[in-house]
Simulated assay, not measured.
Amino acid sequence: MVIQTFTVEAQVLTSDERDAVWPLIVVEAPDFGAYQNRTERVIPVVRLRRVA
């Protein structure tokens, strides 16, 4: 395993962006889908972009 450290910019996805990627996230991490089904709040998704 290679560990890298770098600076990122974080941005919470809009509801439309989140809706588009949520199914892909749940495929990779089904527990997130199960948790979303048990709560009334919307679990935010954060995009990390590497900055120079």
Results as ranks from 00 to 15, higher is better:
residue 1 M to A: 03
residue 1 M to R: 06
residue 2 V to E: 02
residue 2 V to F: 00
residue 2 V to N: 01
residue 2 V to Q: 00
residue 5 T to Y: 04
residue 5 T to K: 06
residue 6 F to C: 02
residue 6 F to L: 01
residue 6 F to W: 00
residue 6 F to M: 00
residue 8 V to R: 00
residue 10 A to N: 02
residue 11 Q to W: 00
residue 11 Q to E: 05
residue 12 V to N: 05
residue 12 V to T: 10
residue 12 V to G: 01
residue 13 L to H: 03
residue 13 L to V: 05
residue 14 T to Q: 03
residue 14 T to S: 05
residue 15 S to H: 05
residue 15 S to E: 12
residue 16 D to E: 09
residue 16 D to N: 05
residue 16 D to I: 01
residue 16 D to K: 04
residue 17 E to A: 08
residue 17 E to L: 06
residue 17 E to W: 03
residue 17 E to I: 02
residue 17 E to D: 05
residue 17 E to H: 02
residue 18 R to E: 05
residue 18 R to M: 05
residue 19 D to V: 01
residue 20 A to I: 04
residue 20 A to T: 08
residue 20 A to Y: 03
residue 20 A to P: 00
residue 21 V to H: 07
residue 21 V to D: 03
residue 21 V to A: 05
residue 21 V to S: 03
residue 22 W to K: 04
residue 22 W to Q: 09
residue 23 P to N: 09
residue 24 L to N: 08
residue 24 L to I: 04
residue 25 I to W: 02
residue 26 V to N: 09
residue 26 V to E: 14
residue 27 V to I: 13
residue 27 V to A: 14
residue 27 V to C: 12
residue 28 E to P: 02
residue 28 E to K: 09
residue 29 A to R: 12
residue 29 A to G: 07
residue 29 A to D: 09
residue 30 P to Q: 11
residue 30 P to M: 12
residue 31 D to A: 12
residue 32 F to R: 12
residue 32 F to E: 06
residue 32 F to A: 06
residue 34 A to Q: 08
residue 34 A to Y: 02
residue 34 A to V: 09
residue 35 Y to S: 13
residue 36 Q to E: 08
residue 37 N to E: 15
residue 37 N to D: 14
residue 39 T to R: 15
residue 39 T to W: 10
residue 40 E to G: 15
residue 40 E to Q: 15
residue 41 R to N: 13
residue 41 R to V: 11
residue 41 R to T: 14
residue 41 R to C: 09
residue 41 R to G: 14
residue 42 V to Y: 07
residue 42 V to K: 10
residue 42 V to P: 02
residue 43 I to E: 07
residue 43 I to Y: 04
residue 43 I to A: 06
residue 44 P to Q: 12
residue 44 P to D: 11
residue 44 P to H: 10
residue 46 V to F: 12
residue 47 R to L: 13
residue 49 R to N: 12
residue 50 R to D: 08
residue 50 R to H: 13
residue 50 R to L: 01
residue 51 V to W: 07
residue 51 V to F: 13
residue 52 A to S: 14
residue 52 A to G: 14
residue 52 A to K: 09
